[in-house]
Design a protein around this nucleic acid. Structure first.
Lengths: 345, 345
DNA sequence: TTGTAGGCGTTATCAC
DNA sequence: GTGATAACGCCTACAA
């Protein structure tokens, strides 16, 4: 049905009475073709609506100019910001992005990885699903020396570039801030501690407690999928048995902090008076709640741009093998009303 | 550097002393191959780590199993939800998604379209950039009968499938609701009226005013890029010259409604008392503000799933040519505190 | 500066 | 049920 026969470089060549090789070269702006012929060829190509066949050329060149990306989910402000940042740069560098989501399932992550492997992506960018433990699906990439780059949800179990922030220090800062505001019972609301990104924040949290003479209390740890449902349910529990009511919250993302805020309001409580709150990411979310949420600034777009640049230097690299670097982006605490108990000034 | 020579079906064939043709057939689960040989081949392929070459296969088959998607931007909750919905279905149907963003620029949209055309996508999914007027970049797709599907930001100027909601009716409902709450001076905050999606909501707004004996006042129309900066600036102006202070707001997305909410608070005003507010989309955003924002429910994930299903039926279609359908999804008004002035019950 | 020719890995059409 | 073989469209030594 789509048999409108496609133009090839041979057709162009015939029309001009020259060889296909010359046409091919001209189309790639090869220096060894005279400006004159180049122009002739370009013009004809444009006029006849020629389009180069990427399959043929990729087959021949053994490369795809495509980057594979696997993320836990697409509909997250942080993740889509990272993708946005990546896309801008990679697109300008003439790379395509093929994107898959694991939906937090190890199995889907594996399938995606294999598809992308078969699609011969030039590099793979991954933020791990919450519970991925077996990393064997990445072995085929490393074996073929296809660069892998992990961001945010990373792992040490695969030789790859890692790009992230110093989550320990961020967790430490956030918690210390709450302590400085007078909090004594600080809840930590987070994701699957299997993932370094959460584990490190948790460790930072514990270290801050410790350094300030507070005891870590496991009852103040909520680790779940951070969905609206889970967060609300977990928090409602604290409020019910008011003897355990915390006075501070350090949440591992802004969205879940915002959910807590809604629960508080529904129960006639408020931040920062009843509970001082610190989130994570500096999503738009954290700026439109009332009060606005103190958070760790973790700029997705910038991270995406960084990822893209690192990738390009690796793929088109000069042979300097920096395949196993870890890049730590800086991040800082943005103090907003949700945590400001001590009225300063 | 990546010269670890790749296995081909010929290698497999040699190892087994059979022909490459048979291997190819077996790998595709062709019925005309005996179970025995099939198993032998599959096993060897697995053991030797064979991967099929998509370029060769696509070149030969003249199809890519890839869908191109162009969106104005990636980092929007609505858009990323649509993408998420699409990805789930298309991935299960064995399609890849290649995604590009126009960043609201016609030029980038064109470049993306051409790249995807050259990548021989099996279909193109588009939500138009704010100011795209010339649609010539889509002509090459229609000429080659490659299905195009527009969602949200659509156009009639290209023969294609359109999937959207009834924006006129949504705008009408939203505005009527505000009028019922007693509003007389209702601001409409929206995007570029060049896009049907905004134009239709605007028309619905005007019609509702009209039907209720209110005069349309052009000073109450704010049409800009709906960025945080633009929205805040525009609204601060209303508040300054308090003689023109409106008493209602119908915003074309939830995010901008949330921005207005923050401006109000900063100026000691509040919703719904000073201004009753209705947003659009039912983003997460609309549920975490205080008060929660009345909005039009416009479920991105569902829309994405619909897009995927329509696409599949078109691509793998039975020849029934329904290429130029328009699909209208239902949408309704979710009433929340931001607009509830008349305390009912 | 241009042309010749072989091959990239598959799949589909014929035969057998 | 299996095997030859010719495309698919492009790129790149190598030759001229």
């Amino acid at each position: 049905m789509m048999k409108e026969k496609e133009l090839t470089i041979y057709d162009l060549a015939n029309h001009l009475g020259i060889s296909a090789a010359t046409v091919s070269r001209a189309l790639q702006d090869h220096p060894a073709v005279s400006q004159k012929t180049k122009k002739k060829i370009m013009d004809l190509a444009a006029k006849m609506g020629y389009r180069s066949n990427k399959f043929a050329s990729n087959l021949r060149k053994q490369r795809s100019n495509t980057i594979g990306v696997i993320v836990p989910r697409l509909n997250s402000l942080f993740i889509s910001s990272v993708l946005s940042g990546m896309e801008r740069i990679l697109n300008d560098a003439n790379y395509n992005l093929i994107i898959g989501q694991s939906l937090e399932q190890e199995a889907r992550e594996k399938v995606n990885a294999i598809t992308m492997f078969n699609s011969r992506v030039d590099a793979l960018v991954v933020s791990l699903a919450a519970d991925t433990q077996d990393m064997s699906h990445f072995a085929r990439f490393t074996k073929r020396k296809i660069p892998i780059l992990f961001f945010d949800r990373t792992t040490d179990a695969v030789p790859a570039t890692r790009i992230m922030i110093d989550n320990f220090s961020a967790g430490y800062k956030a918690t210390t801030h709450l302590i400085e505001q007078g909090c004594k019972k600080i809840v930590h609301l987070t994701g699957n501690l299997l993932r370094d990104v959460y584990k490190d924040r948790f460790d930072g949290y514990k270290a801050a407690l410790d350094d300030n003479g507070l005891l870590y209390n496991p009852e103040l740890l909520i680790s779940n999928d951070m969905s609206e449902f889970s967060v609300r349910e977990a928090f409602v529990n604290y409020i019910r048995k008011s003897d355990t009511m915390p006075d501070g919250l350090f949440a591992a993302n802004d969205t879940s902090a915002a959910f807590v805020l809604t629960v508080l309001k529904e129960n006639g409580l408020s931040a920062p008076d009843d509970i001082a709150i610190v989130g994570f990411n500096n999503d738009l979310t954290s700026r439109i709640t009332d009060p606005q949420i103190t958070t760790i600034n973790y700029p997705g777009i910038e991270m995406g741009q960084n990822i893209a640049r690192i990738l390009l230097s690796q793929i088109e690299g000069d042979g300097l093998e920096h395949y196993t670097n870890t890049v730590i982006l800086s991040s800082d605490l943005l103090i907003r009303p949700s945590s400001m108990r001590k009225v300063g000034i």
